[in-house]
Design a protein around this nucleic acid. Sequence first.
DNA 1: CATGAATGAGCCTTCATTCAT
DNA 2: TATGAATGAAGGCTCATTCAT
Lengths: 184, 184, 184, 184
Amino acid sequence: MRADAQSNRDQILAAAQVVFRELGVDVPMKAIADRAGVGVGTLYRRFPDRESLISAAGYEYLSGLAESAETARREEGAAWPALCRFLRECAGLRLGAMASALEPNLHDELRGDPNLTAVRARVADLVARMTAQAQAEGDLRADVTAEDVAHLMTLQVYAHPKGQTYAEAIARTMEIVLDGLRAR
Amino acid sequence: MRADAQSNRDQILAAAQVVFRELGVDVPMKAIADRAGVGVGTLYRRFPDRESLISAAGYEYLSGLAESAETARREEGAAWPALCRFLRECAGLRLGAMASALEPNLHDELRGDPNLTAVRARVADLVARMTAQAQAEGDLRADVTAEDVAHLMTLQVYAHPKGQTYAEAIARTMEIVLDGLRAR
Amino acid sequence: MRADAQSNRDQILAAAQVVFRELGVDVPMKAIADRAGVGVGTLYRRFPDRESLISAAGYEYLSGLAESAETARREEGAAWPALCRFLRECAGLRLGAMASALEPNLHDELRGDPNLTAVRARVADLVARMTAQAQAEGDLRADVTAEDVAHLMTLQVYAHPKGQTYAEAIARTMEIVLDGLRAR
Amino acid sequence: MRADAQSNRDQILAAAQVVFRELGVDVPMKAIADRAGVGVGTLYRRFPDRESLISAAGYEYLSGLAESAETARREEGAAWPALCRFLRECAGLRLGAMASALEPNLHDELRGDPNLTAVRARVADLVARMTAQAQAEGDLRADVTAEDVAHLMTLQVYAHPKGQTYAEAIARTMEIVLDGLRAR
DNA sequence: CATGAATGAGCCTTCATTCAT
DNA sequence: TATGAATGAAGGCTCATTCAT
């Protein structure tokens, strides 16, 4: 791929991530193109339909997440702090907005996507391992499943009252959740 | 208002609540009219635009919630179980889907709505009172604010994997959250 | 159906026949709506996609044709003049432009259309009967099949040189064809 | 012109003829470029717009036709069989699909094209001469004009029912036409 | 009053044409 | 010179809203 084309592709993907996060995946394609500084035609050349853009953006989201989960495990020593760091990051990424990509059941067209399937599995596996280990180490309550934890990746609240930003609101909520997860 | 007109209004409002919950507030107006068994014209006669329908539906949601919060307080004896019951009900109602109505900052047109403002205040007050009382009774951790709790009313997760329904997923998440809220 | 709605439907159908004939079936929907004096929305309300409009217009074309074939048979006495009259009318209608509707093999979406199938069969049957009878009466050469004749319904030439209109050009061509069909 | 450039030009022209015949002159430019095995840029370098490509392809069509008309006259001896051979070839070439090029009145942009004008005149002249001669020789009915015959070059039918190909359908139709032309 | 028909603005997508590589 | 990337205008279709019946 030509250098300029690649750069445009990157712009578009970055723009999509931002815009999906802020306005949701049903945002007009034009909004994404504008944010990326390209024409709609260019966007469609790279991503022939909305699904393929969601798929690619979801892939980026999830591999970034997998990446940083692995980093966290390496850097934190224990599983529990790694898990906390991971879930905080998920919340910050507003992963819920991309849930269509995460959850095969939501968007029919995305169900069979092989890249997505692979990275979903990779993330699910990381979550399962962190969960098991944190339970083994006695830090995470024993009665939650890896799936409960996976749900928490997409935690959202819809309120940002007063001067509080969404990031602050969800961060506070996530702290409560983490306290709820901690073993007594 | 004539009896049949009133009945239509009630149908529409009920339909809107169901449909908003299931498909979100951006659902086509026709879908609501169909569900209510009336023509779109009738819908527009009662609710001149989408905002006013969201507003009215939000009002219903919130007053129902206030109602049942008061019932809970009366029936549960202590504030903490009343609060738990209230938050579980919020989750079940998928209140997040109606967040536009709840949160004055989300939908500009809804900001100044007097009915909504009043019922929002009523709910906020109830939450604040339950919060304070539950903290005073030593059941709720002391470091959360009434606002943290208010956020939790709109808690959502976007995943419903395997055979689990959304209701089950959010219920499990809410239990974790309630454990996180409980005083040690 | 309400009277005004019915009238609009008729306008649209009439407009479609004219515009299809002149510009072909790939003409912008807006062009048809404009010609009918309605908005595009109205057009789409009555005919949810292009296929259904082609189908309806094709049906009109073909039933009109069947009608007039029957009239011709009644009025002309013999089969041969009835056939000639019929083929002249086909040419004048520029039936070739509507061939998608006539020919199940051209437009996949139109293949299974039951109305169209029925009227196609009706026309095919009329042609077959006129053909057989004209041959029996010794006016039509014996070596042509009903299918050859059916082809001639869609006869087209693409030229309209000098001051000649298309109608004149195809009329002259059709006379030559009819001479070619006549038994010696 | 460099040898490779010339070769590209030839490829494109050949591709255009094939694709125009099969899909019509409104086919996407990319389809032609692909068929020619070149990029669109190359196509546009050689033919600055669609008209000039139609013009060039039309020129090829018509000079080929003129060529073979002359061959036919030389080889057939009499004018009538030459004319028949010529018209059969026109039908086989599906000349109707290129009618825009043939007929100055159809495509405004093509009206003034000098190459096209010249070759159109050349073909028209050949047709006129064959017509006159065939009439003089008593084989062609006397009441048709050279223009009637020219029309027949673009004869089309739109049906290809059952297993019959278009080529077979038009061939059969042309035989009827030729019978219609023959003097009694 | 209730209905659903009509309207047109808006988003989706394709493709002719231009232009950077 | 060849390529194919970028652009935006144009046409398809949906849906919020208005209005005739």
